[in-house]
Simulated scan of single mutants.
Amino acid sequence: MNKNPLSVNEAIKKLEYYCSYQDRCYKEVIAKLKTLGMFQTAIDHILTHLSENNFLNEERFAKSFARGKHKFKHWGKRRIEQELKFRDISSHNIKTALKEIETDYLTNFYNLAEKKWQTLTDTSLEKKKRRWTDYLLRKGYETHLIFDFLKELST
């Protein structure tokens, strides 16, 4: 906690900047405000201000989160959905966010799956399949995609 607590206006300015350089969810903003030593009534007021002035938008956050994690970390839909739920994002916004990645989803999956398969150097085919499958499951890809691709590799 700060020795000199911030005024509500100072906290608003600080949080406007915090939300403007990266999309944030409510949970992150509330945590930030608590670390600044703000009381619940001030937190409520600041959240209202940030929402009304479009600094804080849950749908925009969910969409950019999904696009970013899929594009840069190559996460699948299940992992993205799980992470958004952890951040208390509504199911409607999660569905909207997952629609953002539909166009590149299968292409990215096949590229990642192929690349990973080529990099594994296990001598046992069963061990290689297991490590490859575990990797893609951790990334959050659906089992039916993984096993369909595995069938293609086997033929």
Rank of each mutant, 00 (worst) to 15 (best):
M1Y: 01
P5R: 13
L6D: 10
V8D: 02
N9D: 15
E10V: 10
E10A: 15
A11D: 03
I12Q: 10
I12E: 06
K14A: 04
L15C: 15
E16Y: 04
C19V: 03
D23I: 00
D23W: 00
D23Y: 05
R24N: 07
R24L: 05
C25E: 07
K27Y: 10
V29T: 12
I30L: 04
A31V: 02
K32C: 13
L33Q: 05
K34D: 01
K34S: 06
K34C: 01
L36S: 05
L36H: 03
L36D: 10
G37P: 04
G37R: 06
F39C: 00
A42G: 14
A42R: 09
I43T: 08
T48H: 12
T48Q: 13
S51P: 00
N53L: 06
N53Y: 09
N53G: 01
N54C: 07
L56D: 04
L56Y: 04
L56I: 03
L56A: 03
E58T: 08
E58H: 01
E58C: 01
E59A: 14
E59L: 12
R60F: 04
R60G: 01
R60A: 09
R60E: 06
A62F: 03
F65S: 00
F65P: 01
F65Y: 13
A66H: 05
A66W: 02
A66R: 06
A66D: 03
K69I: 02
K69G: 00
K69P: 00
K69S: 02
H74W: 07
G76Q: 08
G76K: 06
R78N: 14
Q82I: 00
E83V: 02
L84R: 05
L84G: 07
K85M: 13
K85Q: 14
K85Y: 11
S90C: 11
S90K: 13
N93T: 04
I94D: 11
A97M: 07
L98Q: 08
L98S: 10
K99Y: 08
E100K: 08
T103Q: 12
Y105W: 05
L106G: 00
T107S: 12
F109T: 03
Y110V: 08
Y110M: 12
E114L: 11
Q118K: 14
T119I: 08
T119R: 11
T119V: 04
T121S: 15
D122Y: 15
D122P: 05
S124F: 07
L125Y: 13
K128Y: 09
W132E: 02
T133G: 00
D134H: 07
L136Y: 05
R138Y: 05
T143K: 13
H144R: 10
H144C: 03
L145C: 02
F149K: 12
K151R: 15
K151T: 10
L153A: 08
S154E: 13
S154P: 01
S154I: 04
